[in-house]
């Protein structure tokens, strides 16, 4: 099964590195779509099924917390797992996002294996993934 993934971040460089890590994680990836903020992500989700959504929190137009609320409040998208990738790690914000239905949390700066570990957890185990990124020379940013 090929997994579709949506990466939401206002930084094009961050979207690029997250896409690179996903591609190299060894999962059978279908399409990796991108959005620059929450509003763009919601527009994309009108005709795109995401098996996982990876989103930043601090973004212009619509932030990641508001995006999470909209996704979880819509019967068409509520089943999509949403992972927050952000610099924000204060307890109140993290626990708030998890209480709202976030499937996981990755703190920036991150290592490639952090993203792979969370994808394994969400997408169903090591058998769906490939090489160990922590031992790969090619996984450097």
């Amino acid at each position: 099964m090929a997994y579709n993934i949506l990466v939401v971040d206002d930084s094009m460089s961050m979207r690029a590195i997250v896409k690179k890590v996903i591609t190299m994680s060894g999962f059978d990836v279908g399409e990796i779509a991108e959005a620059g903020n929450g509003l763009e992500a919601l527009a994309k989700l009108e005709d795109f099924w995401a098996d996982v959504i990876l989103t930043d929190i601090h973004m212009p137009e619509m932030d990641g917390i508001e995006l999470l609320k909209k996704i979880k409040g819509n019967p068409m998208t509520e089943a999509m797992p949403v992972v927050m990738i952000t610099t924000e790690s204060r307890d109140e914000v993290v626990s708030g996002a998890l209480a709202m239905g976030a499937a996981g949390y990755i703190k920036k700066p991150f290592r490639p294996e952090d993203i792979k570990a969370l994808l394994v957890e969400i997408l169903g185990g090591e058998e769906n993934a490939g090489e160990d990124l922590s031992e790969s020379d090619e996984c450097d940013f």
């Binding site: 460089s13 952000t86 610099t87 924000e88 204060r90």
Partner: peptide
């Protein structure tokens, strides 16, 4: 900008665990 975002975000996490400070774009 992303370096700035990460540095500022991580500083706020350390210096303001009570979430009194807000981080800009």
């Amino acid at each position: 900008k992303e370096i700035g975002n990460m540095v500022a975000g991580n500083l706020v996490n350390i210096c303001d665990p009570e979430v009194r400070l807000e981080l800009g774009i």
